[in-house]
Design a protein around this nucleic acid. Structure first.
Lengths: 243, 243
DNA sequence: CGCTATCTTGACAATCTTCAAGGCCTGTGG
DNA sequence: CCACAGGCCTTGAAGATTGTCAAGATAGCG
């Protein structure tokens, strides 16, 4: 199940942090360049193969992870295998949350990815010296909570059409503005989308087709979606559109 | 809509904090008795009438709230009135989350309640002097996120029966152990429960009746529930029970 | 003692799921 | 180079769970 290639941080690790593309956007960005060596000393860079689970729900939560490349799905399972994807994690996202001694979800890479792994204990100690890091972690956690509540509204009260539109809007908004007219490639399968939206594979597929037929999106190939009418997409997502 | 009776903290406010029943369990518990005066100086105690909304989604988020008595429902609305209750807040819970300039949800009291209101700016300043408070806030926020993910699993993947059982289990576990055999009174209506579980009033009612008929619970009157078979309730809630 | 809220119950309808089959694309091996 | 196997996706038909509409029961409150 687990297929990771870890590389213990060599002295040159420091370089990794200095040139890290996601540092500014992540928790590590709270530490000045000067103190970066200390962060770097705690980190282990891990390459995660596509499809490999590097966090398993219920395991002792010994580490934090910072996603630096790729996409992850975070999910919870019921005993009979029903699955709910609670979030997709992207570069800059921080995983492995503070509370509780065990992970509250599993994480699996959707494509070849990279994470920075930190000993939870050691990083917690760092928080004592750099309260700004902890503050930043609080800010990101609050944002996740806000997003989780939005998703609860989706799961509890939106129709299939509204759910799929909401998902596509979120994915579109993740694109740089100048690329939103072009087609985007989704890292997740229809199954993943279904497990994220509380729907079945078939309903996701049918709903995508319906959106295509009504001219809101185009689907060059299954994993590529182009949003033609972002206004319509939004009004569907918000539940403002008729039908 | 808003019906609050505020009382500007008098010098005697300090007494309120010192004798506060929920202090140990809440964010304020991170401050020593000695520094409590400073917290007290920032707080305004507010009595909230039953049914009164004291946070409205989208309003500028100028304050934090600490629930000291009663029960609140936190919810989000769609434009057409569909509602999703994302959480019930109890004494000790801290509301008004850090991120974003506007509240991400509305809050309404289910029964006569009391909250402590803090200027967000001033309390944030306090966090600078008392990192322990901020750490505690991170811990509680992390817990809320964990609970939110659990609820996403419920909303996305559980059946009506499993949802209602999960809800009743949570409410039961909130009771002191020695009272779990007795009946508990629910502060929320069937409508609230439906909006929390992503179901309609009718489905909640029917499912409750079904659980009663199968001997898992007793319903002396609509708002009083007694759990007869906690084991059965749990296995239904977890999706382990057949049917 | 009735009024209004809330809750329960029934019949029917709709959305979504399940089951099943077929198509498309990719990679592999003869 | 082509055939075949295995994912993944799409589509259809049938079924089930849950929602909608409607009526009556119950309970709290003035």
């Amino acid at each position: 199940m687990i297929a990771l290639s870890a590389q213990r941080s060599p002295p040159s690790q420091m370089t990794t942090c200095l040139s890290c593309q996601v540092r500014a956007a992540s928790v590590c960005g709270a530490v000045g360049t000067r103190d970066l060596a200390r962060v770097a000393g705690l980190a282990t860079v891990i390459e995660v193969e596509s499809g490999s689970a590097f966090i398993e729900e219920g395991e002792p939560a010994s580490h934090f992870f910072n996603v630096t490349a790729g996409v992850m799905k975070l999910y919870k399972l019921l005993p009979d295998g029903r699955r709910q994807i609670t979030d997709f994690a992207h570069p800059g996202d921080f995983l492995g949350l503070a509370e509780g001694s065990c992970y509250g979800f599993s994480a699996e890479a959707l494509e070849p990815s990279r994470v920075c792994k930190f000993s939870r204990r050691k990083l917690s100690e760092m928080f004592n010296d750099f309260p700004a890091m902890e503050r930043r972690l609080l800010a990101t956690t609050s944002n996740e909570l806000r997003a989780a509540r939005e998703q609860m509204l989706l799961l509890g009260r939106k129709t299939a059409r509204e759910r799929v539109a909401s998902f596509l809007r979120t994915e579109t908004m993740r694109q740089p503005i100048y690329q939103r007219e072009a087609s985007m490639s989704l890292a997740m399968t229809r199954g993943d989308i279904g497990d994220y939206l509380g729907l079945t594979i078939e309903t996701v597929s049918r709903t995508m087709t319906a959106l295509r037929r009504s001219g809101v999106i185009e689907i060059p190939c299954a994993s590529d979606i182009r949003v033609c009418d972002i206004g319509a997409l939004c009004s569907i997502a918000d539940g403002t559109a008729p039908n």
